[in-house]
Write a protein that binds this DNA or RNA. Structure first.
Lengths: 147, 147
DNA sequence: CCGTATATGACAATATGTTGTCATTATGGA
DNA sequence: TCCATAATGACAACATATTGTCATATACGG
């Protein structure tokens, strides 16, 4: 039945995420970063977002992203800019040093993704991604409803 | 190109895992457990495995599983049994109390999986799972090769 | 302006997980 | 037996992430 198929799907997704995080750490290591920091740097480049907004975009707890951002700010990779919309919620901005580090990571990431992606068709990857996204939507709906 | 499709796939997988872990924590909470503890309890029920073997099966670091297992042992949910094959590597066994807790979790998990799985066909879930498994195999090969 | 609800950052406690190191225990070859 | 290698558990340091709590800032309805 679908419940069993879903359980196997979920267990596989959790194990895959572990491997992807490990791979991301390896990609980010030459730039002295990690998977988590990379995500925050990428959000900082988009610009115009506060820490809380970045946390929501990444699906993480606000406080965890705050801690990462504070570290990155002390290291000079991101900077806090005044937010005309909100006195306390500073906007996160990528510094030149941060952009350089992010560039190193993304160069490596592009080659990595090309290499792994070559073993699949775009249709396969997109179909799998669509199923994952639908599951995520349902989970998010449940989280909002349940507390 | 497939590289871009793969990047989007990877990012989606990471976000999905965050939501799945949160959902698992909610399922395990009535039994006073968490997603991580649940995984170890499930491995303990299989029996005949040492901590290091469980870690490999879950794709986690040996030391992290050891710490979780030590906590579960102190709480009386699992027990260490002598291993005739290895003096130091004790076998992990589920206690009656551990089996009771695991049962509570899996009752809830079954209903949860049925509810979410009902929105998908078995073919959809299995196709997505197959793609994730192939990605995982490639990542594991890379990890073994690369160190 | 006031009161309520929400959003945000700060701080602490805790859980999870990795990496590194060490001593001990197998394992296999000379 | 002896030695090298790998596996294992113990311990520590650190990175990541959640939950809870608090004070302050913003938004909105009167």
């Amino acid at each position: 039945m679908e419940g069993d198929a879903f359980s196997v799907f979920a267990i596989t997704a959790l194990r895959l995420a572990g491997h992807l995080t490990a791979a991301g750490d390896q990609l980010a290591k030459p730039a002295g970063q990690t998977s988590a920091r990379w995500q925050v740097l990428a959000a900082a480049r988009r610009g115009g977002m506060s820490v809380a907004q970045i946390a929501r975009a990444l699906g993480l707890a606000r406080q965890g992203v705050q801690r990462l951002a504070d570290v990155l700010q002390r290291e000079g990779l991101i900077a806090y800019a005044d937010n005309p919309q909100h006195q306390r919620a500073k906007l996160v901005r990528l510094t030149e040093e941060g952009a350089a580090r992010l560039g190193v990571i993304e160069m490596a990431q592009a080659g990595w993704a090309d290499g792994l992606g070559a073993a699949f068709t775009s249709a396969e990857l997109d179909a799998a991604r669509a199923v994952m996204a639908r599951v995520m939507e349902m989970l998010e709906a449940g989280e909002t409803a349940g507390g």
